[in-house]
């Protein structure tokens, strides 16, 4: 119990961010028309690709002779980039279709 309380107060800044972000996340897409559900999902999918930053950090911190860590990091970077780049490009392609209608 003690340790959990300590942990909360040590990380209160992050906990605040998490709580506020939950509300922001719900608030910003609250009024999305159903036509945009698919592109929005795809766009959000690209945004969580931000996990690539973690992959870059893992990769960049690995000792150059530690092949196991290098391979893990390398795979993570590839997968993360796929998520980011693929996600944004697919979303753009979907939304391009919407633009033509004007």
């Amino acid at each position: 119990m003690e340790s959990i309380l300590n942990w909360v107060s040590e990380n209160q800044q992050i906990i605040y961010i998490v709580i506020l972000m939950i509300f922001v996340g719900i608030e910003v897409i609250g009024h999305v028309p159903s036509v945009l559900h698919t592109p929005l999902m795809s766009g959000a999918n690209a945004i969580h690709g931000v996990v690539i930053i973690g992959a870059i950090i893992v990769m960049g911190k690995a000792e150059p002779d530690n092949y196991f860590a290098l391979v893990l990091g390398f795979l993570a970077v590839i997968l993360g980039t796929l998520n980011v780049v693929g996600g944004f490009v697919v979303t753009d392609r979907m939304l391009e279709m919407f633009k033509k209608k004007k």
């Binding site: 998490v18 972000m21 996340g25 719900i26 929005l40 969580h48 931000v50």
Partner: peptide, 14 residues
Amino acid sequence: LTGGILVGAAGTLL
């Protein structure tokens, strides 16, 4: 953190 939580929350609502 912000990107992840944002998508986590928005994704759940979506």
